[in-house]
Simulated scan of single mutants.
Amino acid sequence: MYTNGASLEFKNIEEKLNHAIKRGIAYLDSHQLANGEFILYMSDDDAMQEWNLPDSTIFPAALIGTCLLSLRGEEKVENILMKAAYFLHYQMDRAGTWNHYTILHRWRKLCPQDLDDTACVSYFLKKMGFDIPTKSNQQLAIDNRRSDGLFYTWITFRWRFNKNLHYWYLAARELKHFLKSLIFWHTHQCTRYDVDAVVNANILHYMEKRKETEAIIPYLVNIIKTEREGDCDTWYRNEFTVYYFICRNMNNGFTELNTIKNEIIDRILEKQNPDGSFGVSVLDTALGVSSLIYSGYKGIEIEKGIKHIIETQHEYGNWDRWAFYYGGPKKLSCFGSEELTTGFCLEALANFKNLYKSE
């Protein structure tokens, strides 16, 4: 199976692997809110050990739900997925779009709809068999592109012609809170013209390869070739996160991304520690393991990473919270939770288990 070194026997860790997956699922099942939402925390340090403020957002349910898709069939998993799907479907707005914040959040009226949440939620709901207006939201995304074909992050007013009526309906909402909207753009580390690498990778993941998404692939390739993965996105400031979202597209059959496969694999392997972990956290390890598997790598480093994930699971089935995304390039705030880390760890464990089954 492995291309680098001798394999540890799968039968020696299979029982621990299954036990870790079972405990992780039980943790998410018991920590999912009644409405299907998952908690998220805002903090000011990556380890999230200083102050933490709970926040009500769309993103965790979409990400965790997508992580668990490879574990479908187990009763608790199906329960988690359906609750998350109904929660997300209820949060849907005009033309099949989503906001970062839930409908009761105090910032919902100020924060514009965005294509990152919209793409991630849409992908998950499609996989769950929910009926959403994909034609409308994909056309809205297409009409929300820059002149070079890359997609803007925000669905908001810009000084340029746009024939999409849904766009104007959503953009016009700013007029209801005009002054507060100006303050929003002034105080947050973002602009109306943001184009972000991970956001475009997630749009590609949802909308797949078509004429309108062709510009995304060379854009992502160039980022890796020029070693800009640490500074290519306003919100995702961790290289492992960028690798993960790009490699998901490799796994979906975007063979054009294979030109950067070896670079990504080498950069991940360079950051493996003696204890088998990758990077500086168990979240990095989970993202690194899944990225390697999605890119087609089968080295023994993967199994060492899996052993580290299993060994660092807590007694209640969770893994440590760690910053997954940030409030801007200055990293003044970050967002994460035990639930979110646990979702990515479960995805890595499931990917590893499926890798063995396929051999």
Rank of each mutant, 00 (worst) to 15 (best):
A62D: 11
E229V: 03
S358A: 13
Y86W: 08
L8S: 07
W319Y: 05
Y123E: 05
A215C: 04
C334G: 06
S291D: 05
L110W: 10
E263L: 07
K357W: 02
H177Y: 14
D275Y: 04
E311Q: 15
R23N: 14
S290M: 04
L33G: 14
D231Q: 13
F278I: 06
L182W: 13
Q91S: 10
L115A: 12
C111V: 15
Y206W: 04
Y101F: 14
G24P: 04
T226M: 13
G327V: 03
G36H: 05
Y90I: 11
L69K: 13
A20P: 01
E212T: 12
F157G: 00
A119R: 05
W168G: 10
A6L: 13
I64K: 03
A215N: 01
S333F: 11
K11L: 10
A85L: 09
T118S: 07
F38G: 02
Q49K: 15
Y2I: 09
K126R: 11
W322R: 07
Q139C: 08
D93M: 09
M48R: 03
Q272I: 01
S295D: 07
V77T: 12
Y2A: 10
Y219S: 12
L125K: 02
T97E: 11
R72S: 12
G343A: 06
A171V: 10
W235G: 01
N35S: 14
N273F: 00
Y27G: 05
S290N: 06
N18L: 14
A95V: 01
H308I: 01
P218N: 13
L332C: 07
Q113D: 15
I183E: 10
R108L: 07
F245I: 01
H105R: 06
